[in-house]
């Protein structure tokens, strides 16, 4: 597992715990009202679970397992930029409901999240390609050659 994938996956697990904590606070208040402020966590709950948990996990695993170019993974700096932009956007989205200028902060958060996705797509696009396999089948048995044709 490459170092950047470790960062992506650990961040996604941390966002999962954060999203579950927000959700548990909201749901408990829905059951037995004790803290109306928990409803202000609602948008953060959705951002953190959809983008922080699921999307960062998918990005991290994709960075790891998509086909490479030899030993390199293509535009690696763009994948790092995507990680930083998504985290910046999510931190802003979590903080926005508690700060002045909430709408402006939400807009900045969305811009960061969208830029992150754009950067990751730019990184991953050329890696979505067929596996590079040798076409020299002279050393293979008849069965193996047949399997190769069916690949």
């Amino acid at each position: 597992m490459p170092k950047l994938t470790v960062w992506y996956v650990k961040a996604s697990l941390a966002y999962l715990v954060l999203g579950a904590t927000f959700g548990a606070l909201i749901l408990s208040h829905k059951g037995v009202p004790w803290a109306p402020w928990t409803w202000r966590l609602f948008s953060s709950h959705m951002d953190v679970t959809l983008l922080g948990w699921v999307t960062l996990l998918i990005m991290g695993i994709a960075y790891w397992i998509l086909p490479r170019f030899g030993v390199r993974r293509g535009r690696e700096r763009w994948a790092w930029a995507a990680f930083l932009l998504m985290n910046g956007g999510l931190v802003l989205a979590i903080a926005a409901p508690w700060l002045p200028h909430t709408r402006v902060l939400f807009l900045l958060a969305r811009l960061g999240e969208a830029a992150s996705v754009g950067a990751f797509v730019f990184h991953a696009w050329p890696r979505v390609k067929p596996l590079m396999v040798s076409t020299d089948t002279s050393s293979l048995s008849g069965g193996q050659r047949k399997m190769g044709r069916n690949r």
């Binding site: 715990v17 579950a20 959700g23 059951g31 037995v32």
Partner: peptide, 16 residues
């Protein structure tokens, strides 16, 4: 309402 609180705790525990 208390069942919902228990549900919240169980889901949170499962994730953690």
């Amino acid at each position: 309402g208390w069942v919902l609180v228990l549900s919240a705790l169980l889901q949170w525990f499962g994730v953690v």
